[in-house]
């Protein structure tokens, strides 16, 4: 297991390194921030001083090496716009996004799993067909439209829920969270639902497919032949087997939820990382863009790793393969 971890760590380091190169060159290619940042009235002297201060006068490879050197010390550069460390800037916004992503994933499991289970166990029932048809809508409706509709119905027409911002927050572990206050929770509901719609559908379909496959297995019939109650057969023998794909996909989806919460955050004016990155791209605030993408890369790597570890917890057969390797 330790060998496995070390190998895994080395692979991850390589991936991160490759990503820094791609990111750096990619962001460099997007455009020159100087044109946006420095006032057009500035004279040549001022321009050059500013360019030198931002380190943009040096060749790309040197800029990259400097970046890498600083990154190893945990410094991902200072924002051109806010003149604050990019990392600090992103970390300030991260809890909001994390909170949203967690809430959305929680909804997805809470709603998707039971519905998928139901549809899988009674594939012919009318209710199951309704669930499956609705899940297609969840897949195909664009989230910006659904977001607007949610605001229209629940915020404007019915006036039940607020539509913008995080609401009041409370501190936990030195971080501000919305879900700790009642009003904050109310602010969280609509954006979380909007973000979870796709995932709910995904979990429903995965669960249903898994159930349909698993109930035909001999071990399910054998479990019944042992005289186990139906609930034990379903919730232990069937569910434990279908959790493997469901957890994998949900965990990986969690990464993309964070990375692509941009749309939802924009619509609901949710002050998270997604909004920050959009604003930074507008003004070509390179350090923030790079830092943000680095964090996303790291997060995906960590999620993948977590999924692998979870896999071996859920599926005992995986452990053996580890030892052989």
């Amino acid at each position: 297991m330790i060998v496995y971890l070390i190998r895994r760590l080395m692979q991850s380091t390589l991936v991160v390194l490759a990503m820094t190169v791609i990111l750096f060159v990619g962001v460099y290619a997007i455009g020159d921030p100087v044109e946006i940042l420095i006032s057009p009235d500035a004279d040549q002297m001022e321009r050059e001083r500013a360019i030198a201060a931002l380190g943009l006068d040096r060749p790309l490879w040197l800029q990259y090496l400097t970046f890498l050197q600083n990154a190893l010390r945990g410094d991902l550069g200072r924002s051109f716009v806010f003149n604050e460390p990019a990392l600090t800037l992103i970390m300030q916004k991260m809890p909001a996004t994390l909170e949203l992503a967690f809430a959305a994933t929680f909804f997805a499991i809470l709603i998707g799993l039971p519905l998928g289970l139901w549809a899988g166990l009674r594939p012919e029932a009318r209710s199951s067909r309704v669930i499956m048809a609705t899940s297609i809508l969840g897949f195909s409706l664009p989230s910006f439209w659904v977001g607007l509709m949610l605001i229209m119905v629940f915020a404007v027409q019915l006036g039940w829920l607020p539509s913008t911002g995080r609401g009041p927050t409370a501190e936990l572990f030195g971080v501000q969270w919305s879900f700790l206050t009642i009003d904050g929770l109310r602010h969280l509901i609509l954006p979380a639902i909007n973000l979870s719609l796709f995932k709910v559908s995904l979990v429903i379909r995965l669960t249903r497919a898994g159930v349909r496959e698993t109930v035909l297995m001999d071990y399910v019939k054998f479990a019944r032949a042992k005289g186990l109650s139906e609930s034990r057969v379903i919730f232990v023998h069937v569910l434990k087997n279908i959790m493997i794909p469901v957890i994998t996909v949900t965990a990986l989806e969690f990464g993309s939820t964070i990375a692509f919460s941009v749309v939802t955050e924009s619509i609901f004016a949710w002050p998270g990382m997604g909004k920050l990155i959009i604003d930074s791209i507008y003004v070509l605030d390179r350090p923030v863009i790079v830092a943000y993408l680095m964090i996303i890369v790291l997060m995906f790597i960590m999620l993948n790793f977590t999924v692998d570890v979870l896999y071996s917890v859920l599926d005992p057969r995986v452990r053996l393969q580890d030892q052989k390797a």
Binding site: D218, F222, N241, R317
Partner: peptide, 17 residues
């Protein structure tokens, strides 16, 4: 009444001890 199945590779649940 108990039953023993044909394929022993399939009758035990792979994820339970």
């Amino acid at each position: 009444i108990a039953m023993v199945f044909q394929d022993p590779m399939m009758t035990l649940n792979p994820v339970l001890r």
